[in-house]
Computed example of a mutant assay.
Amino acid sequence: MTKPALSLLDVSLSLMGNAGPVDILHDITLDVAHGETLGLVGPSGSGKSSLLMLMGGLETATGGRITALGTDITRMGEDPLARFRRDNMGVVFQSFHLIPTMTALENVATPLELAGVSDAFDRAEAELAAVGLASRADHYPSQMSGGEQQRVALARASVSRPKLLLADEPTGNLDETNGAAIIDLLFGLRDRHGATLVMVTHSNDLAARCDRVVRLRDGRIDGSAA
């Protein structure tokens, strides 16, 4: 039997608040198959983004086990986890997180440069072209619209050809037209690189394009539908 791309077993997350620990996620058990597109939906505060951060090793679970691409990342140290993420994952955030002092091309090339890839800028240029921004390569984030910045963020997330692509409300800061274009690009990048895609969204239209939808409520899986 093929192992899943992502496997979560009895995963819990508690964070310290002003009045003591706050339980965010409770005993989440979930498998995501290789090449699957999974939508995480639910009301605000249900734990969707926290679950995505755990999948990407950007938050540490307080209970349970998380396996990504056959590797247990639950208690992995910060440096090896950063290298694992660099080599295997692409993450797209709602707020872009571009480096303001770098051009679009430099932003996209950064993960490849950190990995020591010799043709980092050639690959970054090709990835910018794939998201329709070849002519904006020398522009800084402040010179680009929100939709263009999110395209750069998509190119940066996909330039290393990740096996796992994680997206947290990728259209949340965009208007309807730009949001639709970003989603088409995101699914296109997934298809081009054969990645597994997990996406947090409030959009019913976007969720409908996923292979499977998992609904969260109060930090627990409320149900799933194909």
Rank of each mutant, 00 (worst) to 15 (best):
L8I: 06
L8C: 13
L9T: 15
L9Q: 15
S12P: 06
M16A: 12
P21I: 05
I24D: 03
H26I: 09
D27S: 15
T29P: 07
H34I: 04
G35E: 00
L52V: 02
L52H: 03
L54P: 14
L54E: 14
G56Y: 01
E59S: 13
T60F: 06
T62Q: 12
G70L: 11
D72I: 01
D72Q: 02
I73D: 09
T74Y: 07
G77H: 11
N88C: 13
G90H: 11
V92P: 06
F93E: 02
Q94H: 01
S95L: 05
F96D: 01
L98G: 00
P100N: 03
T101R: 09
N107L: 00
L112P: 06
L114Y: 05
F121S: 12
F121D: 15
D122L: 10
R123P: 05
E127K: 14
E127F: 15
V131Y: 02
R136N: 10
D138A: 13
S142N: 10
G147K: 00
E148F: 10
R151P: 02
R156D: 07
A157P: 05
S158T: 15
V159N: 00
V159F: 03
S160N: 15
R161E: 13
E169I: 02
T171D: 01
E176V: 14
I183S: 03
D184R: 14
L185Q: 04
F187N: 00
F187G: 01
D191K: 08
T201G: 10
T201K: 05
T201P: 08
S203I: 07
N204W: 04
D205L: 14
D211Y: 03
D211I: 04
R212P: 07
R217Q: 15
R217D: 15
D218H: 10
R220Q: 11
I221G: 13
G223K: 10
